[in-house]
């Protein structure tokens, strides 16, 4: 399986994401500069964390109107797994691939520590390696991770079963404790916490590895025929 990590000016978790796939998962992965990117040959798209375009205007806003996002939208429509973490989630919200928006953290502080996430769905291509209700330790690192959507959108998220991760102890004011959501089709996941920083016990937690393994397993079930 071949992963693309999209690198924008200001991305800073691209190497962590690369490391998680290459060394944690053991699959093929490229760092792909956003300009003139050709995503045709990739089986999964990873939008890493950081501060694309210095968070100018709004987090993720300027990256969301770059050309590479048109390709990512087409890949997403075709069913390719797209994972946006932190700034990657903000970019997915700004493009409209996922509903809602990010506000400044309720207490205005940039927060960087482990949080306990509750796995709300274990039937997505990103979370089949977890069990529903499982609590996992994943670090957060953000100043604008306060998920906001209006009442109608929240209701829709619940109805369509799009809430994948919630915070056990909401750190930032996110509505309904939301830490991660998927699109209706289930192949675009956005989350503020960083699973790519939790793929080795040596560094504190390996609870994020199952996410990458889930994506790989899904891909194998879809495309690899065994005789």
């Amino acid at each position: 399986m071949k992963f693309a990590v999209i690198v924008f000016p200001g991305s800073n978790c691209d190497r962590d994401m690369y490391h998680a796939v290459k060394d944690g998962l053991g699959e093929e992965v490229d760092l792909v500069w956003y300009e003139n990117a050709n995503l045709a040959d990739y089986d999964a798209i990873l939008l890493p964390g950081g501060f694309s375009y210095g968070d100018y205007l709004r987090s993720g806003a300027i990256a969301s109107v770059s050309n590479v996002l048109n390709q990512i939208k087409l890949k997403a429509e075709a069913g390719t797994p797209v994972l946006g973490v932190c700034n990657g989630f903000q970019i997915l919200l700004e493009t409209g691939l996922l509903p809602g928006a990010m506000l400044r953290n309720e207490k205005l502080k940039f927060m960087c520590h482990y949080e306990t996430l509750v796995v709300e769905r274990d039937d997505t291509m990103f979370t089949s390696g977890y069990e529903k209700g499982q609590q996992i330790q994943i670090p957060i690192a953000h100043g604008e991770g306060n998920y906001y959507c209006d009442d109608a959108t929240l209701e829709e998220l619940k109805q369509n079963n799009q809430i994948v991760f919630t915070y056990k102890n909401n750190p930032n004011g996110s509505r309904f404790d939301i830490a991660g959501i998927v699109n209706k089709a289930g192949n675009v996941l956005g989350m503020m916490p960083h699973p790519e920083r939790a793929v080795e016990d040596l560094l504190g937690s390996s609870d994020g590895l199952a996410m990458f393994q889930s994506v790989l397993q899904h891909w194998r079930e879809m495309y690899v025929t065994t005789s």
């Binding site: 205007l57 709004r58 300027i62 700004e94 809602g100 928006a101 506000l103 906001y148 959507c149 209006d150």
Partner: peptide, 9 residues
Amino acid sequence: DKLLANPVM
């Protein structure tokens, strides 16, 4: 609508 404001918020 396209860039300067985010109509969600």
